[in-house]
Each structure stands twice: as C-alpha cells, then as structure tokens.
Design a protein around this nucleic acid. Structure first.
Length: 702
RNA sequence: GCGUUCAUAGCUCAGAUGGAUAGAGCAACAGCCUUCUAAGCUGUGGGUCGCAGGUUCGAAUCCUGCUGGACGCACCA
C-alpha cells in the first residue's frame, strides 16, 4: 500500500474541496501528483498548470504561491509522513520523511517477497499471446529469438499481474515453401540419408538453401512447388469437417487446458501439446530412405506423410532449443490446422458480400488500407491471411480471450492491419453474414481485441561465412566468452590466494597468529575456486544466455537493432551479466552476514534506519528505486514493453553497486547491520523478480 | 509513387505520455583491489535532440513540410 501517495491524494482532494469548493475524484487527484526530476527538488510535486481546473487560476507562479500557502497552513494533516513543503517556480514540492519512507518500503518488500511489485488489475484478463511462431521449413535463427523472448517475457509479466495467459506457438508449417521443400527432396538424387537421420534439421536447411538457389535459374521449380503444395492441401481437405461444427466442438476447450496448465501437472502439459503429436503421427513402417522416395513423391498421401515427417523433425528440434533457454508454451498450433477451413472462410466472405473476386483471386477491401487483402489465390489454395482468420476465430471459441497479442516483426504490420480490419468489417456487418450461429457469434466479438506487438529488425547480423546465424551457435559464442572471463577471474583469485597463504605462513613462522582470518579467506575463496567443471560450464552458459536474452530486451521493441558482436559479448555496463553479477554479490554478502530471513520478518528492528548514518542517503536512493517497481510493471503491461523493466533493473543495480562500493557491512555491529540486511534482501528480491520476468537465468555465484 | 516507422553524445540506447538544469552504458583519458566477488566503483571530456516552420505560458516529445534510413505495398509467410 502506497501510504505516502494516498495520504497526499486525500490531502489535496480535501484542500480543493474545502478551499475551492470543487469535487475531485481520487483518480483525478492521482494524476495531479507527479514526481520531480531530481531528488533535491523533493519526492512528490504538484504543478500549478495542472491545477487550473481546480480553482488555481492565473500565472503558474502565483497559482503555485496560492497552493503553497494552503498546503502550508494545513501541513499538520500530513506531518506524520512528510518533512516539509517547498515552492520552486510553478511547483510545490513535498519531501517525505525519509527514515519512515525507507523502512516502509523495506518492510513491504520483506513481507511480500516475490509478490512485491505485483500490479493487480481490477479485472484479470484472458490474454492469448502468439509468439516465436517459427517457420519450420527454415532453421531457428537469431531473428526468431526476439519474438520468442519478448513474447515469453510479456507472458510472464501478464501472469505476474494476475492475468490468465495462454502462450501459443503458431508454427509456420504450411504454404508454398513446403511445396518447395518436397520438390527439393524429390528432385535431388544425392541426398545423404544417414546424415538425415543424425541431423535432420541441417539436411532440411541444405535442401532449403539449394532449392532457393536453383529457383533463380529454373522456372520449373516454382511451378512444381506450387503444384505439390496444391496436391497437399487438397489431400488434407478431403475428409474435412465443416468449420461450423468444428467451432462447436472446440468451444471452451481451452478452459480445461488452462486450468490444467495452471495446476502444473505433467499430464496436463502433455495433453496441451497433444494436437501437435496427433497431427504429426506417422505410420511406423514409413522411413526416409532412397527406396521409399517414390512412395513419398508419387502419391498425394505420400507427400502428406513426407510433410508430416519434416514437420515432426523440426518440432522436436525446436522443443530442444526452447528447453535450453527456458521457454515453454501452453499450446502448439499449426497453420495446417487452419488450412482445412480456409475455403469456408473464403465462401462465407464471398457470400456475405464482404469479399469479391478480382483477377481470379478472392480479396477484401479494408477501409483505410489501399492494398487489397488477399484471402485466396486464383488456384484456390489458401493464403497466410485466410489461415489467420480461421485461427483467430478458433482461438476465440477455445479461449474466449480478452486480448490476442501477436508478437511479430513490424514488417508484417500491413498484414495485421488487414487482419484486424476484416474483423472490424465482420462486426459491423454481423447481420449480413451468411454463416452458421457459431461463426457469427465468434467472428463478431473479436474486433478491438487484437494487438500487434511489433518489434524492429536485427540489422547486420551475420557469421563470417553465411548470413544466417543459428541460435545455438550464437549462444555458444556467448558462453565461450563468459567462460574466458570466468577462467581469468578464477586465475586471479588463485594468485591472490597463494600470496595470502605465503604471507600467512611467513607471519606464522614469525610467531604472529593470523590463522583465523586466513582460514576464513581460504574457505571463501575455495568456494569460488572449488567450482567443479560442470558448475563452471553451467555458470558460463547461464551468463551467456543472460547476455544474449538481455540484449534483445534492453531496448524498446520498435527500434531496429544494429547488431554488433562486441556489444553482445561485452558483459560490462548495461548488460544481463551485470544484473546477474549484482545478485550474486548480494548473495555472497548475505552468506557472510549469516542471515536468518524469518528472523528478519518478525523483528521490527530490522526496518529502522537513521538518517544520521553516513550511508543513509544511498539507502534512500535504493529504496526510492525499489518503490517504483509497481509503476514500472504497470507501464510494461500498458505498453507491452519488457524493456521498461530492463531499464528499471539496471538503475536499481547501479544504485546498489554504488552503495556496495562505498559502505562496508562486514565487521559492523549487529544492530547497525540488521536493517541493512533487510535492505539487501529487498534489492535482491526485486532484481530476482525482474530477471525472472525477463527470462534471464539467476546465478547464486559468479 | 503510396503507406508504416525511425532520426537524441564518436558508438549503443534511456528520457515516467507536453513540464523544472536532456541522462546512462560502451569507447577515450585519469584514478580505486593486504578490508563484503574489479563482470564493480570514482572523476574528466563529449549535445544546435536530422533541418525548417507551426501549435502555447512551455516542445526531444504534438502538427506540417523537407532531408536521410529501414520496412511493406496481388496470389510468399
């Protein structure tokens, strides 16, 4: 509970009401209270120009004078929490009682633990978040990392605030590209099948690259690919259900899954992914081999099986990668599922007069967008857009979402404005739609609930040879760099240690007893030095992952990222490892101070600070930063912008490191140390919370 | 050509939704490890907020124009 702001709010509401005879709602009052840009100006302020509607007219300076006098006269009402009021230009500044402020903040963090900073909304929403969504004909490159990490982080932030989140991975498992891949498989006679078994994704990638190259010179490639894709899609629609019945069947299905997922049982997790497993079911006796090639390439069913095999191999690979960086989904969906119904969409939109035929293709004209929205090709096969329409309606039936968030690059902005526009049309023309009850119901309630969370491109990223950087190589590069740094540091520690031992031995021989400090130091340092090989591996891996992920989350999403290896591989300053390092520093300190956290909670003494202490100003800065967490979380949700939290965490870590550098705790008496332990725990709690929300691994030691 | 979007220190970016003196980190230079992890800390230098207008008490932030970049614009996703 924010007692300082609340108190100030009622204070100002009362003043306006009683002195100016104007009623102000608490929400309006909240907007009047701002934070000065600098601590020396105070902690809260009222700006005269915002007060004009509340009886403070005239020049800002004179209005501020009026306001200042009234506040001053009634200062006794807030004297319990505030020290003083000052006037400065057009502003009236309020200074909190700093000792009280710090102890309130620290107490609240220690009491609420990992819940601290939660911004609970009046009404929790069901938010479906579609992110990562790789195209499985292509390997998982670094480009996918941004969507993956932004989406995962947003999911965590929404969940942290108490919203229901459904994390959806919408696999690009369909389209002409698969026709190309199948074409490649069937055309080339020199496929290495034993390698296919060992590293399928690599072979698929080679096929992909090769067919694209051939396409440049050979026009028959595209022709064949299109034909094969049509064969595939037609085969899949053979024994299809109607969209209307399908919608009826899946209605509310998500509810069960959501509940299960939230209970966290392993069966539930499996069940939620079963759709993919089912779709990827492949007959036992069919294997990729030279002999079976004709089987795959000759018939429609063969191609269908081949497609399933490619799909399955890719998904397995993706899951492995996701797991390694701590990403998980509640549901895997595929475009192929929606393809089954995209013809229904085309027919409904045509019949209802929303779509029309132009140059043989089906298009929708969306208000305000010049480019026509293509929903079907002239050969009748489906397109990205029509499949997306099906998908959203299905999701609405399944999950009844309040928000559907697409975390997709900004280059697809046009696609999404067309998609969103079509649902606007469907809502406006709800009566005209010639379709079943289910379709009309769901399709008309989607408008306004779709959000495109776009992000900028990563520019200039390439390896020495190729142009696509595989995520795993990227992480490995970061890991090696972290390892290098770690080993360097271990070596320095080792040197210091041996010098110390020599020194002590010398002193011992001279008869000076320093055994106690020696053993303490040896113990401490061997803790670090004694890290086993696996530990060193894990540490460097976590640091590497932290660096890579933070790099994608530290700037505002919409700006393009100028990729620079040196930037990513530097672990100093505004980086993930800096945050991880700060946490491990606190850990180390807490270990040395022998902390009992339950003790801390029950002992009011833990939260009492004195402003006469030399470190108080620095503690106040830390407390003030911590106090801002809730606002930061709130605006991260508001803007769908994880970077708000990255910046926040960097600031907090910086304040803490300054404190750490300037004030020592070891060796001080316990009464002095106790409240500071609570402060340390608070900083750690907040940093760890944010690292979790940003999908960055936390380390005990570095 | 039309549309979207961006332009802040040498480089990478913040800038609380129009408010007080535009801030960090890298890089450069000068310092701090026999005392809690130097992946840290301290200090110095570095700015016509792309350019020109406009809106008002007040603009890096809003509107218009220009310049420059990125992305997108009919059967790819």
């Amino acid at each position: 509970m924010d007692i300082f702001k609340e108190t100030l709010k009622t204070f100002i509401v009362n003043i306006i009401k009683e002195e100016k005879k104007i009623d102000v709602s608490s929400l309006q009052a909240e907007k009047l209270i701002k934070n000065p840009p600098d601590d020396s100006f105070g902690d809260y302020c009222l700006a005269a120009y915002y007060m004009q509607n509340y009886g403070f007219q005239g020049k800002p300076e004179t209005a501020a004078g009026d306001l200042y006098n009234l506040c001053g006269r009634r200062f006794a009402e807030i004297a319990g929490l505030f020290d003083k009021i000052e006037i400065k230009g057009a502003y009236v500044n309020f200074f909190v009682k700093r000792e009280r402020f710090v102890s309130e903040v620290v107490k609240e963090v220690v009491d609420s633990g990992s819940d601290y900073g939660r911004d609970v909304p009046e009404k929790p929403l069901t938010a479906a978040i579609d992110f990562s969504s790789p195209n499985i004909a292509k390997p998982f490159g670094v480009g996918h990392l941004r969507s993956t990490v932004i989406g995962m982080s947003l999911s965590k932030i929404y969940e942290f605030c108490g919203h229901k989140v459904i994390k959806i991975n919408y696999l690009g498992d369909f389209g002409t590209q698969f026709g190309k891949l199948i074409t490649a498989f069937c055309r080339y006679g020199d496929i290495n099948f034993s390698e296919f078994e060992k590293d399928p994704v690599k072979v698929l990638y080679e096929l992909y690259v090769r067919i694209h190259k051939d396409e440049q010179t050979d026009a028959t490639v595209e022709e064949e690919a299109k034909k094969r894709f049509k064969t595939l899609e037609d085969f899949m629609s053979l024994n299809k259900r109607g969209f209307e019945e399908y919608l009826g069947a899946i209605k509310g299905l998500g509810d069960k899954k959501i509940k299960n997922i939230f209970s966290g049982s392993p069966e539930a997790a499996e069940a939620s992914e079963s759709t993919v497993a089912d779709a990827a079911y492949i007959p036992e006796n069919i294997k990729l081999s030279e002999e079976n090639k004709n089987l795959f390439c000759g018939t429609a069913e063969g191609q269908y099986n081949l497609w399933k095999i490619f799909r399955k191999l890719s998904i397995e690979e993706f899951k492995r990668i996701y797991k390694s960086i701590g990403i998980e989904f509640d549901s895997y969906e595929g475009e192929a599922e929606s393809a089954e119904f995209s013809k229904d969409i085309k027919e409904i939109l045509l019949k209802s007069g929303i779509a029309e035929i132009s140059e043989g293709a089906a298009i929708v004209n969306v208000k305000g967008i010049k480019a026509p929205a293509l929903i079907a090709k002239s050969d009748g096969t489906s397109l990205y857009l029509s499949r997306d329409i099906v998908t959203v309606i299905s999701r609405m039936a399944k999950y009844n979402f309040d928000k559907m968030i697409y975390v997709v690059g900004s280059e697809q902005a046009l696609h999404f404005s067309q998609l969103f526009g079509i649902f606007g049309i469907l809502k406006e023309n709800a009566e005209k739609i010639k379709a079943g009850k289910n379709f009309k119901h769901y399709a008309s309630m989607i408008d306004g609930k779709l959000i495109h969370v776009k992000f900028g491109r990563i520019i200039g990223m390439s390896t020495r040879k190729g142009n696509l950087v595989f995520l795993e190589d990227y992480i490995e590069e970061a890991r090696l760099k972290a390892l290098e740094k770690l080993e360097e540091r271990l070596k320095i520690l080792e040197n210091n240690l041996s010098v110390e031992i020599k020194d002590a031995a010398k002193k011992l021989s001279e008869g000076i007893e320093e055994l106690e400090t020696l053993t303490e130091n040896v113990e401490q340092q061997s803790l670090i030095h004694g890290q086993k090989k696996e530990q060193i591996y894990l540490t460097s891996l976590k640091v590497g992952i932290g660096a890579v992920i933070f790099n994608d989350l530290k700037t505002r999403r919409t700006t393009d990222v100028n990729f620079n290896w040196d930037n990513v591989l530097s672990f100093e300053g505004q980086t993930g490892p800096y945050l991880q390092y700060t946490v491990s520093r606190i850990n180390s300190l807490l270990n040395r101070l022998d902390v009992n956290e339950t003790d801390l909670k029950n002992d009011a003494q833990s939260f009492r600070f004195s402003k006469n202490d030399a470190d108080f100003d620095d503690i106040f800065l830390i407390a003030k930063q911590i106090y801002g967490l809730k606002t930061a979380v709130h605006s991260a949700v508001e803007q769908n912008e994880p970077s708000v939290l990255s910046t926040f965490a960097l600031d907090l870590a910086s304040y803490f490191n300054k404190y750490y550098q300037n004030h020592r705790l070891i060796g001080k008496n316990y009464d002095y140390v106790k409240p500071r332990i609570a402060m340390l725990v608070s900083v750690k709690t907040v940093l760890v919370s944010i690292l979790n929300l940003l999908c960055i691994p936390v380390l005990d030691k570095m």
